[in-house]
Design a binder for these strands. Sequence first.
DNA 1: TTGTAAGCGTTATCAG
DNA 2: CTGATAACGCTTACAA
Lengths: 338, 338
Amino acid sequence: MSEKVFVSAKEVADRAGVSRSAVSRTFTPGASVSAETRRRVLEAAEALGYHVNELARGLMRNESGIVCLIVSDVATPYRSALLRELTLLLQKAGKVAMLINTDRSDGSVDRALRQAIRYRADASIILSGMPDRSIAQLCLRSGQRLVLINRDDEQPGPLRINLDDYEAAGRVVTAFVRAGCRKLAFANSEVGTPSLMARERGFVAAANALGMEVSVERYGWTGYDAGKVLAQRMLTHTQRPDAVFCATDLLACGFMDAARHQFSMSVPDQLCIAGFDDIEQASWSSYNLTTFAQPVSAIAFKTVDWLSRPRAENDDAIHGQSIGLHAELVWRGSIRGG
Amino acid sequence: MSEKVFVSAKEVADRAGVSRSAVSRTFTPGASVSAETRRRVLEAAEALGYHVNELARGLMRNESGIVCLIVSDVATPYRSALLRELTLLLQKAGKVAMLINTDRSDGSVDRALRQAIRYRADASIILSGMPDRSIAQLCLRSGQRLVLINRDDEQPGPLRINLDDYEAAGRVVTAFVRAGCRKLAFANSEVGTPSLMARERGFVAAANALGMEVSVERYGWTGYDAGKVLAQRMLTHTQRPDAVFCATDLLACGFMDAARHQFSMSVPDQLCIAGFDDIEQASWSSYNLTTFAQPVSAIAFKTVDWLSRPRAENDDAIHGQSIGLHAELVWRGSIRGG
DNA sequence: TTGTAAGCGTTATCAG
DNA sequence: CTGATAACGCTTACAA
């Protein structure tokens, strides 16, 4: 027993003694129904436990209300924070989020986009990875909207939101120099996404402009463990750095822990550290990390706002629209002399 | 321009010179199509960029492939870890996850379940909050499957997965006593969910059984900040505890930071601390927290496994099925003498 | 193996 | 304001 049996509009209509169109109209926001009909329909619906079938509605309206969130590393502080904001705003806008985890296997962003198409998602938001050009084009041709968050600005997609990683990284050089640091280092992961590389390039360039060399090291993924390993490598050099900019807060936490607990260095006295993302842990008093804040709310707001707007207005489908957001430096205690 | 125009099976059929049923059959796993027809359909589909419309398919099959994840505090380490496992396994099982964030406003679990019904979800997995009995019954009556993770065991739902919170909490008393602690304390939040309260009761009961009193304090939400506040309150008592069990790792991290940085206490020498959840940060060397591991993978596995199984087999819809999972104590450095 | 036709639960159109 | 009727894109007997 217990097959899936949902009650349909016809049953409600029968019970309320009206036509099925009347039922449909009752549940369509801007439709004309008399108060009396409406009342009777609502009553019958309540009694029967009727709920509009969004699948059928989507079929007719050619608009599913579904927005796909394509993301890897969901359990990471920054990603999950962005996820929280996005789902919240999407819901407020009457949309529903379909979450596609691209953690395992390669080319899974493409698979995710294909799934978005199969479910006739109104839009896809890509938080991780890069879609293949052809599949992205297919999405756009199908009339699906695409948002790329912190992806390469070269990637196709009608809305691209990017941070000023390069410039931000430059600003931290100034901070280090002001703190009296001379031997700068950059700790990066090997994943080499555009944002990460932009931070590295920006940091190195700004340092070079001041006539300083930067020792760069890359290892592993962008997590805590990689930060520890990076510290082990970089702090055993003959020339120990006195300031290190980590491409990510997670890296910074790992780096700091290793510096303190394995090399007995004091932060920020012997070593200044900066990170990027402003994850919650950066503010925990064990770390108290100076870092750049990802404007999570702003990113989510811009995204959903753009999605909620009518099509015609932003139909820059060929070139795409690019929004640049600013990463604010959050001063805490890991750089001397805030 | 750029209305949503997806290519339909009819167009593929026309191009391939076959009937539309042939197309349908080609994309239905166990259907009989000749190799030649199949090839031509696939070719046409590829050329046109055709993708099955899951909305329409769901309408016919009465099975959407959608599973709703109802959750609050997504950005929290434990929750996001569970989310990661669930989405991954669901995808592997050919399902797709719809994420409903219940952070804001009350009664939103009910709203979420209603949405699950509207999208004809095959199942809903509830990670936070409690559904109203009536709406839960409606889901079940509609043939939607319900899974409750770490909710009250009294709640309705055919699959309930729960931890042995009560017993686990008892085991930490033993650990504290073995470490020579005499003044036990329990730091809890005010949210009072069943799991949290079970930990508190289990801890107090086990301590009482050994003739020890426990000072219990409750404050705020289950986060880091609340942990700090709890420490400030509990460590200014005339009778300072020498061991504290925090209902959550997040609370424990906050508590530990406050104890060290504001009260200059050393952990575990002057104060033993235990937490619950085994979030990633618990293993970071600044905390090195002894804690209970949430069996995240097991939870996700049990859930998806149950969902993948045919209906008849587990149609214990009235009583529901209850799975008890064990929380393993992870020994680290925050209790003396591991 | 194939095509034809009916039907899934909606909404949109169009008379009344 | 209301009710018939025709889509929407798909699956699935049923018949060939």
